[in-house]
Write a protein that binds this DNA or RNA. Sequence first.
DNA 1: CACCTAGTTGGGAAC
DNA 2: AGTTCCCAACTAGGT
Length: 422
Amino acid sequence: MKVKDYASTAGIEVFSPVSHTLFNPADIIQKNGGKPPLTYQSFLKLAGQPLWASSPLPVSLSSLPPVGDVGYFEISEVPTVEELGYKGYGQEELSPFRGGESEALKKLRESISDKEWVANFEKPKGDPSAYLKPATTVLSPYLKFGCLSSRYFYQCLTDVYQNVKKHTSPPVSLVGQLLWRDFFYTVAFGTPNFDRMKGNRICKQIPWSNDDELLAAWREARTGYPWIDAIMVQLRKWGWMHHLARHCVACFLTRGDMFVHWEKGRDVFDRLLIDSDWAINNGNWLWLSCSSFFYQYNRIYSPVSFGKKYDPNGNYIRHFLPVLKDMPKEYIYEPWTAPLTIQTRAKCIIGRDYPAPVVSHDSASKECKRKLGEAYALNQKLNGQVSEDGLKNLRRKFEGEENQESGRRQKQKTLTGWLKDH
DNA sequence: CACCTAGTTGGGAAC
DNA sequence: AGTTCCCAACTAGGT
């Protein structure tokens, strides 16, 4: 199919009529003076409405290329799972998600058929422990492989929004999720060495440890923290887990507990996720490791309480870690605290049937915070980001706000507390 | 009905 | 899109 034919059929601009993304990253970067926007909000402002979105969806294409017409390349056989290096996987180990465009469109229609659900969608409010019916659309693998067009998805969502009274907005809405995807594509496209720490101007330089033992325990789902290990089993078996579940394990590997380099975790996700996408995967590892975009390194996901608040009974853990299925719910998130009689009754002795924790979250997370604090201070010094004058300005601004608010507030915030929010 | 106590909930601040 | 601690406010039930 010729680009011009498609464009005239679709009634859209001749430039980039077909694309993997909603916007052209180069356009956004150009609008921003040559540098990619580094916050979602600034990205939204630059992006605006996509030009093609006001046109009706193309209902048919004038022509399709003959099967096998791929220009200079020969079509080769689709490699088998074994040929791709995934040996020893039984049928029950395979992802429950089927591939292909038909499946993608079926899933899309199912997802948008509940208009109220679409209108009220708010990420990250979904339940990461929901596995019978995931809290999100699970359309990411189809977007990644091009089985589903992000532009078509966008227009379908716009149609739903037009037929409801009110709907959520970016960043939390469903359209907001597509925009997150374009945000990461744009930054990734415009940032040299985006996929590594060294030579990457937006990445904090942090002296991550090189502990292969800890990395292996994380990768192989034997950290001793059932919430973490269950997520890693879901990753291995399904190739997909909920957004917040990914947050928990990424935080645990890097800045939360193990202090292992985010590039190592990135490689594992890249290999095992069925939706792994270079820009989005690297972007999220930069985010979760507090290397870029997000810098609140004190906010650490608890490997115990985070999952518990969604799934107090531990059903998710019981499903993905059957060895713990008879552990009483009082101990299932911290089985090493269960008395031996309970462990015996649950047929799960810690240290024999299921590992003891490889790190103590309490001390490990404190140590991580300390190291991040040091690394941040060093980065600041090296980059000269906060000069003496800059600090004075911040102090003046803080005192100004404090005076304005002191009338209606009894307690005073400290300067350090305030600085963290600004 | 006043008063007490234990337990729960919600918001703010520190880390 | 963090967790924990603390305290005020509130509830339920008992005396």
